[in-house]
Design a protein around this nucleic acid. Structure first.
Length: 431
RNA sequence: GCGAUCGUAGCUCAGUUGGUUAGAGCACCAGGUUGUGAUCCUGGGGGUCGGGGGUUCGAGUCCCCUCGAUCGCCCCA
């Protein structure tokens, strides 16, 4: 198709990344990989298998659950000349429910799945919210026991611990929709208004007192009675069993019962939880709960399920707030990206550099060399240090070199090449 | 979708009531010091001043529009 050459080009639009998206240069990508690595290892350690699905789905998949109103929050599109409507996925749960429904008869019980993938939402970016972001989804399918709830909670807490957070810094607030619904009924709300009451309670912290009371009155919610009951947790049966489970798996430091957590979404049916920074400085780090009706809604047999999601944006902000994001060279070491050896030639041996590097790489070492023209050893050692290499190999002849351990400053002068290679290998295998 | 603040080199920023060829530090590249990560010295490459339009003899600077960022509202799977 011919382009229009004469129109003024909106070059800003073309050459800047789209609103709410990120470019990942090597350092940024390393930090992202570090988070993904923590997510993946934590999930695997807790017995979950990794899955993924399409990055875009039929638009209907999202409107079935959330209604047409969701469309304005989606990036949706049709093919040129086609009429099927698609949308970039804004969340994983519909895909998960679809996948689980498709194989419902052959899946083991419970089925424990996790995923790490990008999501897209057409919202205005602000702190902790972008239009493209990563999310870690962890779900237990086909198990309606509180044990499955606890499995999710333990995995979530395990992640918090593995990135260096402490119970003083973050809190995993556990609640139960069924318990809160009981309290709502006990506080005078008619059955028909239960959902409205849950929505109102979800907004409670954001509303001022008068406005909240006013709205509570319209659904006959007796706030004083509700708070009195909520204060007496032991009276609520489903809370009691949750508390027992948390204690049983040793997570009392991390978790607390907090009945103000009800989650905004209508599809949660039982336990719900959120992770918050204790100072309240950032938005929720993670959230989830039990959704026993959803898989049936997507064409599967009635199947209980529970899960949660954690996004990369807020997690990274919290880690930065707390000074817990490791230094870039520590991340590189963690991910196994450190060069094993950096080869430094002299004027006499520069023709030997390329063959040696090729040989080192054939032997499985991560080998780098200088591209500079200077043969000043001091400058090249600095370059080796900047590359974060474990060893610098100063090439003296085709059979002799000096090997300097860049971490300890120990140097072996003029040793046979074979001895140097033995000292370099084997590379450490990270975690 | 709405509002506020902001946008000059890769990064942090300076740039006078509008006035010559837009600067500094760090980073990067190269050279110097007899081959050991420092410090230092010298030189260099880098900028459509986010983009477009307007006012003016003259715009990084003033005006309008637009794109983006940050923070908030709505929403938050």
């Amino acid at each position: 198709m011919a382009s229009e050459p004469n129109q003024p080009k909106d070059r800003t639009h073309v050459f800047q990344p789209p609103k709410g998206t990120r470019d990942f240069y090597p350092l940024e990508l390393a930090r992202r990989r570090w988070i993904e690595d923590k997510w993946r290892k934590t999930a695997v350690r807790h017995g979950f298998d990794e899955i993924d699905g399409p990055t875009f789905e039929h638009l209907d998949l999202y409107t079935v659950k959330s209604g047409e109103g969701i469309v304005s929050e989606l990036f949706s599109f049709t093919r040129q000349g086609g009429d099927k409507q698609y949308a970039l996925r804004p969340e994983f749960t519909p895909t998960l429910a679809r996948m689980a429904a498709a194989r419902a008869n052959s899946l083991p019980k419970p089925t424990k799945w996790f995923s790490i993938c990008p999501y897209f939402r057409a919202e205005n970016p602000q702190r902790g919210r972008l239009r493209e972001f990563l999310q870690w989804n962890v779900d237990v399918i086909g198990d309606d026991s509180p044990q499955a709830d606890a499995d999710c909670i333990a995995t979530c807490a395990g992640l918090l611990e593995s990135v260096g957070l402490t119970p003083a810094q973050v809190k995993l607030k556990v609640s139960s929709r069924t318990a809160v619904a009981e309290l709502i009924r006990a506080a005078g709300v008619p059955q028909d208004y239960t959902d409205a009451a849950l929505v109102l309670l979800d907004k409670r912290a954001k509303l001022d007192r008068d406005e909240f009371c006013k709205q509570a009155a319209t659904i006959q919610l007796d706030i004083a009675a509700f708070d009195r009951k909520a204060g007496d947790l032991a009276s609520v049966a489903s809370i009691e069993s949750l508390q027992a489970l948390i204690k049983n798996i040793g997570l009392t430091d991390w978790c607390g019962i907090d009945l103000s957590i009800v989650r905004g979404l209508a599809y949660y049916t039982g336990a719900v939880f959120e992770v918050h920074e204790t100072t309240g400085a950032e938005r929720a780090i993670a959230g989830g709960g039990r959704y026993d009706n959803l898989i049936e809604l997507f064409g599967g047999p009635p199947t209980p399920a529970v899960g949660f999601a954690m996004g990369d944006v807020v997690l990274a902000l919290v880690l930065q707030d707390k000074g817990l994001m490791p230094k870039d060279d520590e991340i590189a070491a963690d991910l196994g990206l450190r060069p094993d050896v950096f080869v430094i030639p002299t004027t006499e041996t520069e023709h030997l550099m390329q063959p040696l590097v090729a040989r080192l790489r054939r032997e499985g070492l991560h080998a780098r060399h200088t591209y500079k023209s200077t043969r000043n050893v001091g400058k090249l050692l600095k370059e080796a240090g900047n590359a974060n290499a474990r060893f610098a190999l100063i090439l003296e002849s085709d059979t002799v070199c000096s090997l300097k351990n860049l971490d300890t400053n120990e140097q072996t002068d003029s040793v046979p090449m074979s001895e140097a290679l033995e000292r370099i290998a084997p590379p450490p295998r990270p975690g």
